[in-house]
Deep mutational scan, measured.
Amino acid sequence: PQEEYKKRAKKALKKGDEDTAREALKRAGLSPDQAEEFIRRFL
């Protein structure tokens, strides 16, 4: 589910792994723009 992928993305970002985070967010159904926004907000 979407929440699970978002959790995964946050874990990846904590490790500084933005590529894995983007992949997880893409799987969560976010557009690339939404994924970038999510990452920017998190960092």
Score class of each variant (00 low, 15 high):
A24K: 04
G16W: 04
L13S: 01
A28Y: 05
K15L: 14
F38N: 00
D33E: 14
A12K: 02
D33H: 09
K6H: 08
A28S: 05
R41P: 01
G16F: 04
Y5F: 13
D17L: 06
Y5H: 09
L30P: 00
G16V: 02
K14G: 09
I39V: 06
L25Q: 00
Q2E: 13
R8M: 15
G16E: 03
D19N: 11
A24I: 15
A21H: 01
A28C: 05
A21M: 02
F42R: 03
D17N: 06
A24D: 09
A35K: 01
R40L: 08
E18K: 13
Y5K: 03
K11D: 15
R8W: 11
E23D: 11
L13G: 01
L25S: 00
R27F: 10
L43M: 11
G16S: 04
L13D: 01
L25G: 00
G29Q: 03
F38M: 04
L43K: 12
E18V: 15
Q2G: 10
K14D: 10
A28F: 04
R22V: 04
L25C: 01
G16K: 05
K15R: 14
R40C: 09
K26D: 06
K7E: 15
A12D: 02
L13A: 03
K14V: 13
K7Y: 07
D17Y: 04
L43T: 09
P32R: 10
A12H: 05
L13M: 04
L25A: 01
E36C: 06
E36A: 08
R22K: 06
A28P: 00
L43N: 09
D19E: 13
K15A: 14
P1G: 12
K6G: 04
R22Y: 06
K15V: 13
G16Y: 04
E23I: 10
P32E: 12
R41F: 08
D17P: 02
F42C: 09
E36W: 05
A24G: 03
A21W: 02
E3T: 07
F38L: 04
P32Q: 11
T20Q: 10
K14E: 15
E3M: 08
T20S: 12
E18S: 10
I39G: 00
E37Y: 06
Q2C: 14
